[in-house]
């Protein structure tokens, strides 16, 4: 899923300093699961903003809403009936949701209430880590199910580099060396011969480098 993290409250207060009526909009998708932008976070953020503005003697009227998904037009449409009554929206969906909101409601300023960090997993309660960079050209069958593009600090396709020590990455002793993990996995599966193969230089056209991406599925279009 997409992992996000709340922005500091002072940053959000700065973004909305000139408004007195805002919507705080959450999303029941990924950001609910990673506790960054769901219904509960909408509630907590709204009361924090209201309290801070109360203290500044600049009261803030807030409408709290949590959509099923902000990356889907049908749910965004649910705000059409009341959005004009407000001066701005603080969206705590992921970057895609925030942008789709801005696209569907171009007249109202949209303020990001969270930072969108990565595509990752829940390692344990309260711990998330990155797994995928959405390069559009999956090679996980070659690398023991561990992505070197997302998880090696240098995205090296033929690692590990000389900076791997005790299974950790040179950038931080807390960061596992992706190539150590790859080797461990292939060893376990008796497939170490896989590592003798040079993975050729990557074609990045399917990645962000090829420009903004779009998928059209004719079979699914209405």
């Amino acid at each position: 899923m997409i992992i996000g993290e709340g922005k500091p409250i002072k940053d959000i207060l700065f973004m909305i300093q000139n408004y007195s009526k805002v919507i705080v909009a959450g999303c029941r998708g990924c950001v609910t699961v990673c506790s960054a932008g769901g219904e509960k976070e909408v509630e907590v953020l709204s009361s924090a903003l209201a309290m801070a503005r109360e203290n500044e003697d600049k009261p803030l009227e807030i409408k709290e809403v949590t959509l099923e998904r902000q990356c889907d037009p049908e749910y965004l449409e649910q705000m059409r009936s009341y959005i004009d009554e407000y001066e701005a929206v603080v969206s705590i969906a992921c970057g895609a949701g925030i942008q789709f909101m801005a696209e569907k409601y171009p007249k109202i300023p949209i303020c990001p209430g969270i930072n969108t960090n990565f595509i990752g997993v829940t390692e344990e309660q309260g711990v998330w880590s990155e797994r995928c960079q959405a390069c559009g050209n999956c090679k996980l069958h070659m690398t023991g199910g561990i992505c070197p593009i997302a998880r090696c600090s240098k995205s090296i396709l033929n690692g590990p580099c000389g900076g791997s020590a005790d299974g950790k990455c040179e950038i931080d002793p807390e960061v596992p060396c992706a190539w150590q993990l790859i080797i461990d996995n292939l060893k376990e599966q008796g497939r170490l011969d896989q590592l003798e193969v040079i993975i050729p230089l990557n074609d990045w056209t399917t990645s962000r480098d090829g420009g903004p991406r779009k998928i059209i599925r004719e079979d699914l279009k209405l």
Partner: peptide, 21 residues
């Protein structure tokens, strides 16, 4: 070496190729 070691840790790295490439 990763840019983290240097004096421009905020830089974007490239790594279009690795050393073998």
């Amino acid at each position: 070496d990763h840019q983290k070691f240097g004096d421009h840790g905020a830089a974007k790295n490239v790594y279009d190729l690795d050393s073998i490439h």
